[in-house]
């Protein structure tokens, strides 16, 4: 029961999905859509487990007054407030995502700027990563550096001002060698993914249950 049933469930689900792709006739054709809806429903329930795990972890910190308990309290307060406000939005406006719902206020003034700022941090991180990547210590790293510099210069006006070579070379690198390697990697990865999926469906790969 503990191992066989899950293996059968995985086998059937995976096989039905593949069949659904090739067989449009009822009942197979619409199976993919149906299974994806089921997946979303299961994911919805599981979200409770997730939020519960988050609450427990931080409630424990607060209860035991561990280091940083104040931050954990802020996390819990933020979470609870958002959920309450979401429920209020649902009741009062019919949808938490209604433009006047306080839920959207929280979204607009916390999540949106936080997301945008984290994204902006990327510019700094990419600078520090470049510093390391560009200290070409071997021929492989030198290749990376040269191609990166050409592409960068090719994409800004200064590059074109120095020489027309940069925009032209930039385009060529992106369209030819860059594309070639990307395709090769994607073909290989896709084969690997298909093979792993096959192993999972057939129960050969069961490290997720083992």
């Amino acid at each position: 029961m503990k191992r066989t049933v899950p293996l059968i469930i995985t086998f059937l689900t995976g096989t039905f999905l593949v069949m659904s792709f090739f067989v449009p006739h009822a009942p197979f054709g619409e199976l993919e859509q149906r299974l994806l809806v089921w997946y979303a429903i299961v994911a919805g329930f599981t979200m409770l487990l997730g939020v519960d795990s988050l609450i427990r972890a931080h409630a424990r910190k607060v209860a035991r007054v561990r280091e940083g308990w104040g931050f954990s309290l802020a996390l819990l307060a933020g979470l609870v407030a958002t959920v309450i406000v979401g429920v209020i939005g649902r009741v009062q406006f019919g949808s938490p995502f209604h433009i006047q719902s306080p839920f959207m206020f929280i979204y607009t003034y916390t999540i949106v700027p936080l997301q945008a700022t984290m994204f902006a941090l990327l510019a700094f991180f990419i600078a520090s990563a470049s510093y390391r990547a560009f200290r070409a210590r071997n021929w492989v790293a030198t290749l990376l550096l040269v191609s990166a510099v050409i592409v960068m210069l090719g994409r800004i006006p200064i590059g074109a001002a120095i020489s027309q070579f940069f925009p032209v070379a930039q385009e060529w690198i992106m369209d030819v060698p860059q594309l070639a390697a990307k395709r090769g990697i994607q073909i290989g990865a896709a084969l690997g993914a298909v093979s792993m999926s096959l192993r999972i469906i057939l129960g050969i790969e069961r490290s997720y249950l083992s």
Partner: peptide, 15 residues
């Protein structure tokens, strides 16, 4: 507790 959920938000998770 060590295998825990943080948040589904891409950058919230990153933070």
């Amino acid at each position: 507790a060590r295998v825990a959920y943080l948040t589904y938000d891409q950058f919230g998770y990153t933070a």
